[in-house]
Design a protein around this nucleic acid. Structure first.
Length: 490
RNA sequence: CGGGAAGUGGCGCAGGUGGUAGCGCACCUGGUUUGGGACCAGGGGGUCGCAGGUUCAAAUCCUGUCUUCCCGACCA
């Protein structure tokens, strides 16, 4: 049992906070709402980046980099967009500091006021569309399929490590197309890329859907999303992809001459996932002993821990451990041999459990005699004696089994927590139980707002694979074409 | 941004009627240990979040400010 880790039952939110810090993923910094991503946490993020990046490249995208600062005038061009982000923008107004004449330190130099203030990007649509204007003349210049890995800033009032921070890391894809059909295809394709990645790689089951107009991205015509459910029954948006129509093209005057000779506005998309995925990862699989990582994502998949008394025993063990290490490495497994003499085996067991390493191999004198190793699984906390000659195969099959089982477990929990409700009373009690509530909605913003006021629940998504069975709205009784998913969300 | 709580060695906390800081864990040294967070002995480390103020004297009292946590408002 992990020391000092609050149990989930006791206080889920505190469990999460403790875990992030104790597993060495991230820490708070001296700046409100900004986090320090520690090496172990960043290693996981790098694995997310690596895999996503290659999937982006496979689907025809290239990486580029746009500036952190956005001129205020660019930012104000698309009305809905401004409306959506204005309240959470950091603004740069000066470019110089000076010594305070009264000797009390450093102050802003009022003489160095910027003529045009700069916004720290909350997202990059505006500066990118301002740029695309210069890149696009002809249909031959399209499509543009650009992604960037960057940090963004949204001045949040209430923050939590990974889930909502004022500065966070993400990728944002921005594409421009000649036709509406192409742009819609792109935004749908990317939500599938996200969905497949999150399910296959992070072992987190998702629901693919579209957003209601209330929850839609500021400036988009349609927002596709993947929604997940955490162990405490709250929903978490894990990724979004937006069909922007011609909104940004019109705002930034991005036109091209088509084959027919006519001038047309281009069609756009944007899509992103952020370090919030780390939060989803932590809250989907982990337990009261600490982090649980799916093997495909774990920076360390297997740790080898030697158990010995005195130098003699270590001398005998070490070559065997090294041989196992070499063998596992050779078959492409990310393995660490922790031969530090500064910590006892029991200490290491707990440490790697807290950090979610999927498999642990313990090698001691008893194993040496019998030609075995003890293999322990992080997800089930079970142990097994395995013959050394079978070890490599055993580890490989264990890793893929863990990956499959983590997903299956999370999927089962997701499915078990989608509850239908057909009247207001059962709607409310279903929300209180946690999870998604599948209910009819009359399709209006007003009704969604009222429901939000009354229950704190929002429409998380309109599932893509929805059966179009009509009914009547849970609140107003007006006709509804299909059920949507409500939940209280992060 | 409102309401509440808190900030004291790396971590968790005590001290608070003002008199210059202590405990547990961690750390360092030596020894014994090592199959689920070892033990003994010795040792190092803190301008008490920061800035002002009251006072002969401030961790302690006052004011401001920053950060964190909880609740709310806000949030794609």
């Amino acid at each position: 049992m992990a020391k000092n880790l609050t149990t989930r039952e006791n206080d889920y939110s505190r469990w999460y906070n403790d875990l992030v810090i104790q597993a060495d993923l991230a820490d708070n910094s001296g700046v409100r709402g900004c986090m320090i991503v520690k090496p172990y946490g960043f290693a996981i993020w790098e694995r997310i980046q690596q895999e996503l990046d290659s999937r982006f490249k496979e689907t025809g995208h290239v990486n580029a980099y746009f500036p952190l600062f956005i001129p205020k005038s660019h930012f104000s061009k698309e009305a809905d967009h401004v409306e959506g982000f204005a309240k959470e923008c950091a603004v740069v107004t000066h470019y110089r500091l000076k010594n305070n004449p009264n000797g009390s330190g450093i102050i802003v130099d009022e003489d160095a006021k910027l003529e045009e203030e700069l916004i720290v990007r909350p997202t990059s649509e505006t500066i990118i569309w301002d740029t695309y204007k210069k890149w696009v003349q002809s249909y031959r210049d399209l499509p543009i399929m650009v992604n960037q890995w960057a940090n963004v800033v949204r001045w949040e009032m209430r923050t939590r490590l990974f889930l909502r921070t004022s500065e966070f890391l993400w990728q944002e894809g921005h594409t421009a197309h000649a036709t509406e059909k192409e742009a819609i295809f792109e935004s749908q394709q990317m939500i599938d890329v996200y969905g497949d990645f999150v399910e296959e790689y992070m072992a987190i089951p998702v629901i693919r859907g579209t957003k209601s107009s209330n929850e839609r991205f500021a400036g988009a015509l349609e927002t596709f999303c993947i929604e997940t459910l955490m162990q405490d029954g709250k929903a978490l948006q894990a990724g979004t992809s937006h069909f922007l129509g011609q909104n940004f093209a019109k705002a930034f005057d991005v036109k091209f001459q088509d084959k027919d000779g006519g001038m047309k506005f281009v069609w756009g998309t944007s899509w992103g996932v952020s370090t919030r995925l780390m939060g989803a990862l932590i809250m989907t699989h982990s337990d009261d002993n600490g982090l649980v990582l799916p093997p495909k994502l774990a920076p360390i998949q297997v740790v080898i821990i030697p158990i010995y008394r005195g130098e003699k025993e270590f001398e005998e063990l070490d070559p065997v451990a090294l041989k196992v290490l070499k063998e596992l490495k050779a078959s492409g497994i990310r393995v660490k041999y922790d031969n530090r003499d500064t910590h006892k085996p029991g200490w290491k067991f707990n440490e790697y459990e807290l950090k979610g390493v999927p498999l642990r191999i313990a090698l001691g004198p008893r194993d040496l005699e019998k030609g075995t190793a003890e293999v322990a699984r992080r997800d089930t906390l079970s142990k097994e004696l395995v013959k050394l000659k079978d070890l490599s195969d055993h580890i490989k099959s264990n890793l893929s089994e863990i990956q499959v089982q983590l997903y299956a477990k999370a999927k089962k929990s997701l499915d078990a927590n989608i509850n239908p409700a057909d009247d207001w009373e059962s709607f409310e009690s279903a929300l209180d139980k946690g999870g998604f509530v599948s209910a009819h909605w009359d399709g209006t913003s007003e009704t969604e707002n009222k429901i939000k006021e009354m229950t704190k629940a929002t429409i998380r998504c309109i599932p893509i694979e929805n059966k179009k069975i009509s009914g009547s709205c849970i609140l107003t009784g007006k006709p509804s074409k299909e059920r949507v998913l409500f939940a209280r969300a992060y």
